[in-house]
Design a protein around this nucleic acid. Structure first.
Lengths: 197, 197
DNA sequence: TTCAACATATATCAAGTCGATATATGTGAA
DNA sequence: TTCACATATATCGACTTGATATATGTTGAA
């Protein structure tokens, strides 16, 4: 979804500055499935302003730098709905964790263990944050989002915890790279895995 | 992860052309957690070539356009390992499905039902494709990747199937937008939801 | 107390990436 | 036959990211 629509979506929840819109993607409700940087938010707000989809009020006072508060117009609301009605593009998921895990055999075992442990902590923290809010208080659509997301994290955590020990034991038993710094042994290991599909 | 490393990773599995590398991200093993386009793959292969991390063999014959087959060098293998050892960046997940679902109350009910049904089919198809291969045949790292990914898809599917009817019933019962095309009714609906957190 | 780290707030820029498009040919199905 | 699709490389405009610049307030630890 383009950043312009993303901004409209945040502003639909209430007026906000560019800085606050960024926070919605960093810590807020949208943080799990959308993102945008300042470099795209500020230009987007400029365009939305000139097209009349948002209105900007300059808050010159404050003890901070000027704050530009943006507010959705009726035209902006219409544009948001229209965008929501267009067929959604496929999900995009990129993960270095999965990528590194894929090549676990090539890495020192302690490194792999650390990777998995960090992942477990990562899931635990997200789950804790997500379970502090009461789902019953959410509107229907948001509640399904929340429930589906939480399910994914909980089951990922459970899977990792259930398989961690077996996984590590298997890695330990099958190669020598982890206990030796002999380059020849190393090389042999790499060659061994080379053509496994 | 930068596209250069991604190319090295694909080439680690065996030599390939730019076109074939693209396919690895589109249909192959990496398709679930990494992506790259021609616009980034071809320049990356050029740089990798000039840096000696890959070797290029021009296959001039064939009945097709020239095929440039790239092969990993020792230096390229070392570079891949080094990249795998650097701390992984956080996952990135963007989903229009979640985004639209979040605003389900604002949309016509048939549209929302279609969205959920398509999602269910999407999960079913992926699960079917992933369960055709035998996980026991995979190297340890790949097997954990595969298992974790499959778990996510299976549990997402189960959650949607379990909650679909209740979700739709709830949407149907709470608003009028879905059965009326009266713009005033429409507007009222939008205002009603306006400030729900 | 002081001082570093962090938060608020806007904005820009180089580098990288995507999605579409161009080019050229082969294959298979309707 | 003709059209859609697959193979194959390559480029380009538009967009996005991540880092950085600028300026100030707050907070907590040494």
């Amino acid at each position: 979804m383009d950043v312009r629509t993303l901004c409209l979506a945040v502003l639909y929840q209430g007026e906000a500055s560019g800085y606050e819109i960024k926070k919605a993607f960093q810590e807020g409700a949208f943080s799990h499935f959308q993102d945008a940087s300042f470099g795209s938010i500020y230009p987007a707000l400029g365009r939305l302003s000139s097209e009349g989809l948002v209105e900007c009020t300059q808050m010159a006072q404050e003890k901070r730098p000027d704050k530009k508060v943006y507010k959705l117009t009726q035209s902006g609301e219409d544009s948001l709905i229209t965008s929501l009605l267009t067929p959604p593009t496929p999900d995009k998921f990129t993960s270095d964790f999965f990528f590194v895990l894929y090549f676990a055999e090539l890495l020192p075992l302690p490194q792999v263990i650390k990777l998995v442990d960090q992942r477990i902590s990562f899931y635990q923290e997200i789950i804790e944050r997500m379970t502090t809010c009461d789902p019953a208080a959410l509107p229907t659509g948001r509640r399904l989002c929340h429930g589906l997301g939480l399910t994914v994290y909980q089951n990922s955590l459970a899977y990792l915890e259930e398989n961690k020990e077996r996984f590590i034991a298997e890695l330990r038993s099958q190669n020598t790279i982890h206990t030796s710094s002999d380059p020849d042994t190393n090389r042999t290991q790499i060659e061994t895995n080379r053509h496994i599909s």
